[in-house]
Design a protein around this nucleic acid. Structure first.
Length: 274
DNA sequence: AAGCCAACCTGGACGC
DNA sequence: TGCGTCCAGGTTGGCT
């Protein structure tokens, strides 16, 4: 579900509410997400700890508690939400962190593809999933990283955009939309695309992510994404091709096509995207 | 050795 | 109503 704009939207909604507050209760379920949650470790590490800051790397959210850092990834169905401690938790609530001003942060993740780990600050730098990430899609050198990787790769350009070790933060929606705006066929081998067009694609990535951020992310019809305050994102109405199989391309009115690529849907206009 | 793909899960939408 | 099938915003490890 959440790609860079959604994770950043969540980060921004949590930051003013939680930073500088201490945790006074931890309720963790020993559930298996991508890695197992260890309740005792969460309690031991976080009880009494003050949240110093919230940062984001790609789709990962990092909560800095000084000694320790909590690392979150929301997978496909994860939500971080704020609620009053007394309210009944939603099904699939795996983690509840109550802060000293009576606000509770809850991690809900039905499909359990997410990540919630507590790391010693010293071990943060050697945490594999973060080590693997390429530059953040919003970082200045993301463009250079994309140009460089595209020059070496025979993979379809859509797959390259999804590869977090090339550029971190893009998922299927924004990769698909960036390709539409750049007028590039998602199935084309990265290496076969001119440098000039890859540069244009890098620009489209930046524009799409920027617009999605301004809209507070993408909430599809199923209502999957909401920020920590329960608000929708409004970028769905601006999607040009994603989820629009059979609809008219906004530029040329040709029917938008859906294909499976690496087991995932990709949408494009066969006329505008070459 | 890069790149495909099944697997990890649940839930919702759809067809019969 | 119910049951089966397909699909979903992500990542990884194993295979070719």
């Amino acid at each position: 579900m959440p790609e860079l704009p959604e994770v950043e939207t969540i980060r921004r909604s949590l930051e003013p509410v939680l930073v500088a507050h201490r945790i006074d209760r931890v309720i963790a379920s020993p559930v298996r997400l991508r890695e197992a949650i260890e309740p005792a470790r969460w309690t031991r590490s976080l009880l009494g700890a003050r949240l110093l800051g919230l940062t984001r790397r790609g789709k990962y959210l990092l909560a800095d508690f000084g000694q320790t850092v909590a690392v979150f990834h929301l997978g496909m169905s994860g939500r971080l939400m704020l609620s009053a401690p007394g309210r009944n938790p939603l099904p699939h609530t795996h983690l509840r962190l109550r802060f000293d001003h009576g606000v509770e942060l809850r991690l809900v993740d039905p499909r359990r593809f997410g990540v919630a780990v507590i790391l010693d600050r010293r071990r943060l730098a050697s945490y594999e999933p973060l080590l693997r990430l390429g530059p953040d899609a919003l970082a200045a050198h993301a463009t250079a990283a994309l140009v460089e990787a595209a020059g070496r790769s025979r993979a379809p350009i859509r797959n390259l955009l999804l590869d977090q070790s090339v550029v971190a933060g893009l998922g299927n929606i924004y990769a698909t939309e960036a390709l539409a705006r750049a007028g590039i066929d998602p199935l084309r081998a990265a290496r076969g695309i001119s440098r000039r067009r890859i540069l244009r694609l890098a620009g489209s990535v930046r524009v799409v992510i920027g617009e999605a951020l301004a809209a507070g992310g993408t909430t599809l019809a199923d209502g999957g994404f909401i920020d920590a305050m329960g608000r929708n994102g409004y970028f769905a109405v601006r999607l040009q091709v994603y989820g629009r199989e059979g609809e008219a391309c906004p530029r040329c009115s040709s029917a938008i096509v859906r294909r499976a690529l690496a087991g995932r849907s990709v949408f494009f206009c066969p006329r505008c995207q070459r």
